[in-house]
Amino acid sequence: MRQSSIIDIISPIMVGPSSSHTAGAVRLGLLARHVFNSHIRKIKFRLYNSYATTGKGHGTDKGLLSGILGLGVDDTRIKNIFGSDIAQHIEYSFEYMEDFNRHPNAVDFIIEGKDLKMTISGESIGAGEVVIRKINDFNVKITGHYNTLLILYKDSVGIISTVTTLIQKEHVNIASMSCDRSGKGQIASMCISLDGELNEKIVDVCQYIKHVHLVRYIKKLES
């Protein structure tokens, strides 16, 4: 497990009032924005449990939308994001749910773009730390601590080794990796956390691998 550093203890510089419910919400929004990585026309935020019941008083709704729009955790515009110019071109709505099978601070982003739809689920796990757990129905683990390569593809022989070989050729170390699939030969996901920076060209190359549907390179978040 990752140990805390002094900087973790005396940061982040953020707008209040809660690291999990405000800063965490912004970080989840930012990660979802990078995962979708395409123009967002419409978005529905589905907030669960504590996010649903105490979210309004903590500005969780404002934080989530601000992250989706690309604002950082210390951006003072978060407070007045509703009805602001930056939020003009996006259609957004909120739903509040209770489901104790979900984490106390869970959220689903149901996003529609021009020709892309995606459901991204995340959790705020404490002290501003967050995890994206699901993209559509696939399990992933994106924390914002690492540059992460995410690939959705049709399950077939050799795809994983093709991708990892490309990364190896860049001399970048893989910190951790997780794969998931809906069934043999069905759609699958691969989520690779990296210690270094990946050349953006590799991301383009991955797009052209046979059976690959979607590639995203999600840069680590500033702390």
Binding site: P12, M14, P17, S18, S19, G59, T76
Partner: peptide
Amino acid sequence: EENLRMGKIVACPTAGSCAIV
């Protein structure tokens, strides 16, 4: 109070305890 009105603070170690240090 700056924290709860969504002003900018430093979590130290958390946002709820941001004024003590």
